[in-house]
Design a protein around this nucleic acid. Sequence first.
DNA 1: TATAATTTAAGACTAAGTCTAAAATCAGGC
DNA 2: GCCTGATTTTAGACTTAGTCTTAAATTATA
Lengths: 132, 132
Amino acid sequence: MTDTIDLLRQSGIQPTPQRIAVAEFILGSKTHPSADEVFVMVRQTCPTVSRATVYNTLNLLVEKGLIRQQVLREGTIIFDSHVAAHHHFVDEETGEIHDVPWDAVQVSGAEKLIGFEVHEFQVVMRGRLRAK
Amino acid sequence: MTDTIDLLRQSGIQPTPQRIAVAEFILGSKTHPSADEVFVMVRQTCPTVSRATVYNTLNLLVEKGLIRQQVLREGTIIFDSHVAAHHHFVDEETGEIHDVPWDAVQVSGAEKLIGFEVHEFQVVMRGRLRAK
DNA sequence: TATAATTTAAGACTAAGTCTAAAATCAGGC
DNA sequence: GCCTGATTTTAGACTTAGTCTTAAATTATA
């Protein structure tokens, strides 16, 4: 909790109970929740937080670089606490998003495209989970 | 026009004036329009087509494999007449989507991920257009 | 304590996508 | 051509994700 407060402060974000609750949840999450999924979860620790505040807070965390937003799931933006470059796997059946380590896939040529100044890239893979 | 009718029939799609208009537009498009952008454009050739019919038709074309849908732009699904594997470049400033030829980028390892059965993949690049 | 600035809450609003029910159209048989 | 059943279209209603608005609450500062 104190770590989260310090982190918010260091990022120029005024810590409030609502913001702390949202940050604790999303920064501790290994999944890729939508804003409304965050809202549902955060209401458990902060029952009076409003939906608009959750959206506002998530967008602020993105703006300050603490989390990333991704366009990977149909119908909604998802949020990702893993800010370092990595790839994604999208489960076609469930829509669930999985992180793929940056080094698991090798990409060359992406930053040398003619006509484009590439700032970042990722490989987006689609398929299904393998039975274990 | 006759080509489009034949193509629809071969795909098991009953050709109607509305469907022909939508198919002609999207199959001839080099861009990545949203459903509502298609709606606006198709209304020029088929002024009485309804918005629901445009959505229905695009989804049917996707289902039959004539076009692809992509989750690349915030806030909306885009449609892509280029069904063969290729990559995409997303212009950070405008949100515009550009095709990148499959061979322009080399990817290895994507289909050998532990735990995942990868059916398809693409590299999604973000940045800005280079001044020409 | 007072004041200004910031944040929150909750409802309203917008836009993308889908649903619904009736009307229109199409396909096939006679 | 007519009839009937199936399919498609229409247009408005509806749902949901994301944003806006305004007043209240909270925080920061003097």
